[in-house]
Design a binder for these strands. Sequence first.
DNA 1: TATACTGTGGGCACTTGTGGGCAAATGTGG
DNA 2: CCACATTTGCCCACAAGTGCCCACAGTATA
Lengths: 145, 145
Amino acid sequence: MFLGQFAYHIDSKGRLTIPVRFRAALSSGAFITQGYERNLIVYTTESFHVLAQRATKLSTTNPEARAVRRLIFGRATEISLDGSGRILIPPFLREYALLDGETIVVGAGEYFEIWTADAWDKELGSVADPDTNTRRFVDFDLSAG
Amino acid sequence: MFLGQFAYHIDSKGRLTIPVRFRAALSSGAFITQGYERNLIVYTTESFHVLAQRATKLSTTNPEARAVRRLIFGRATEISLDGSGRILIPPFLREYALLDGETIVVGAGEYFEIWTADAWDKELGSVADPDTNTRRFVDFDLSAG
DNA sequence: TATACTGTGGGCACTTGTGGGCAAATGTGG
DNA sequence: CCACATTTGCCCACAAGTGCCCACAGTATA
């Protein structure tokens, strides 16, 4: 399970250090794709296969289904860790998430996300607000019990 | 599985470089045909045979079915990789997709697509829009879990 | 019918940029 | 305060993309 948030600098070639705690989970391969906001999502091989299998079953004659396939397959790439624990993020994903300089890696359970520092700060304004969270926990009926 | 997007220049003879990662899948032959949008679709031999078999079974009395058959059989061509990993795209398909200059190759799982840079940019406006995608994921009930 | 010319496609080679790896510097934990 | 683990900058080699040359085939003209 991916937990916590970590800050790194992406280099000029688009390589990003992965938190040491996350590396073991990626040793058997991983997939990166664009997220729902202006961020990226990294899935383990198992998680991505679930998603890919569902997308493969969609009809190709439905235009909306074709757009979803383009999103899931066309905007994703398999990645692997180099000797220094980095991943190489392809240019089109770097552009999408506006990655350049300070970059935040955020655990999200089954997957983790990659944000620019600026975008994460804005998101954090919402995530860290006690009142907003109280409402969310009520909305989704979440509690530890 | 074909993943990711790649940019190349089609040469004056209609030859297009195929991403290195895609080449092994095409080594035993491939088929190219026109897509549903102003793009082209490349299938592996296996995928094309599945598609062809399904198309063969379609009713000949349904006008829509006849149109699909014409698309799949009438506008398809077998292609192969040359020594430099390129395919030769026949003129009628080049004209259909308006290919000339910068060309984008986009993975879509079982097959991949070929777009002009301009056409892909327009499509990307929809594919990369967070709000549209959130709706699509809900519509199709997709998630990695 | 034969020859010459044109255009298509195969293949080679060069250049460029990507990515792997090493090493230094910085930060953290004991 | 010291030592070890980590990050990130930099260098170099290899591979990939694209331009260019040549051969073969098809067509037209003499």
